[in-house]
């Protein structure tokens, strides 16, 4: 199940927007069992070079995975690859936009390999995450 997306180079993936709050970070810490104080202990985080708490990288990365799921559906779950770098922290109050663009489409033997650049940016346009994602889609998916 996915949004209809024309598989051509340059096509944009559906963007999603999320707002980071400390409550959201704490909720993610519980769900992921990642209680690193840099995320949840404001006093600890204030004394580090980061100067305050930051969102878990995997929380922000989940937004990129949601973009890929919206674009490619179940294929992303069973034949997807992700390679990203965390470029800047996402902080409470940040408004994030995750999205991407198809860079390369390779068709062979009834299957299509779609390579995308993916990103997550903050409200100032700064890259929080950049990287690439690749997904293999079958003929049925490709024709929809």
């Amino acid at each position: 199940m996915r949004n209809k997306l024309e598989l051509k180079e340059g096509a944009s993936l559906p963007e999603i927007k999320r707002i980071i709050t400390q409550q959201k970070i704490n909720q993610y810490a519980e769900a992921s069992r990642d209680f690193n104080p840099i995320h949840i202990d404001e006093e600890f985080a204030r004394k580090t070079p980061l100067g305050g708490t930051i969102a878990h990288g995997m929380l922000v990365l989940a937004y990129i995975s949601q973009v890929m799921t919206a674009a490619f559906g179940r294929q992303w779950l069973s034949d997807g690859r992700l390679n990203v770098r965390f470029k800047a922290p996402a902080r409470p109050g940040d408004s994030l936009t995750a999205g991407g663009r198809i860079c390369r489409v390779e068709r062979s033997a009834g299957q299509t390999l779609v390579n995308c650049e993916v990103f997550c940016r903050n409200q100032n346009g700064e890259a929080v995450i950049i990287g690439e994602a690749t997904v293999r889609v079958g003929e049925d998916e490709n024709s929809s």
């Binding site: 690193n36 104080p37 840099i38 600890f44 990288g57 995997m58 069973s78 992700l82 990203v84 770098r85």
Partner: peptide
């Protein structure tokens, strides 16, 4: 893990649901 570790990069390959 030492407190304050920062995640800098991540690769995943999803092979099956």
């Amino acid at each position: 893990f030492p407190q304050g570790a920062i995640h800098v990069s991540q690769e995943f390959e999803f092979l099956a649901t």
